[in-house]
Amino acid sequence: MNATTDLANRNTTERRKAEITREFVKSFSIVLVFVGICVLFTSLNQYFFTWNNWLNLLRQSSINGILAIGVTFVILAKGIDLSVGSIMALAGMVAANLVTTGNESPILFAIVAALGTGAVLGLANGALIARINVPPFVATLGMLSMARGLTLIYSDGRPIANLSAPMKWIGSGNVLGMPVPVLIFFAVFVIGWITLSRTTFGRYIYAVGGNEKAARTSGISTRTITASTYVISGLLAGLGGLVLTARTTAALPQAGIGYELDAIAAVVIGGTSLSGGRGSLVGTLFGALIIGTINNGMDLMGVSSYYQQLLKGAIIVLAVIADQIRK
């Protein structure tokens, strides 16, 4: 009996090791790309490889990273979410309104309001898609416009500034030398990674994205799973909106325009398949870091943002080509 347990335990450890190796190999190519880009910028600019710049780079990547993690859930379940940029603007606006000087509610209210706004709009997306069978592209394209409209109506087109100190701290504070946005990003990543790889819910997401009909035959409530990925995406968009507002120390009605595309780009560069069922959050993490590094490195070198756009586009296409070749 003891021998069997022993053997079983050893098998488990070996299996775990194998699993880690596999994860690593799968994401190895993207790590390599990331390291390559870092080496390139280090050789081109002496300031690039400094602690301060790394903190800066991580801070710059964190908002896109948070959004991209949410969008990964959606894409894994064979959906798409175009509305995260607009949702974050509205969520940021709602949160800011609660914590301006003169009308200073506890910071917790702002956090709950931002996350709640995101989750509710995400649920609206999910209901349209999973209940009424509106194609995800159309439903979230509609939400992109509607949430932006709501933001403009709510703010009357004006920014909300004069945020309370705790709110500003979310954007510019440090804990143990780490910027708060970066800590939030990593916390979200860890929770997301555990959810996707260790829970039944995570497995169901992969199954629904891989083959919805087979998932349904197997007894999975596919509608609920699909809808929840949009709630998660909306919730994280709300969180992203909160951090963005705190970082810019004002909620702007035009905040977050185009952010959905950067988030999708991070997911795609990270190797998650747009046809669902394949991919990982580790990929998304590095996808977001790669985008952040390119922006940061080229800023340092004084490359015009016009060229940055061009290069980012080229990298997205190259990432997908590399993925095709690997297959």
Partner: peptide, 16 residues
Amino acid sequence: DSGLVLSSSIAHNITL
């Protein structure tokens, strides 16, 4: 079409 999640592993299909 409806029996298997082809993109997933044998183990994950068995226990779905």
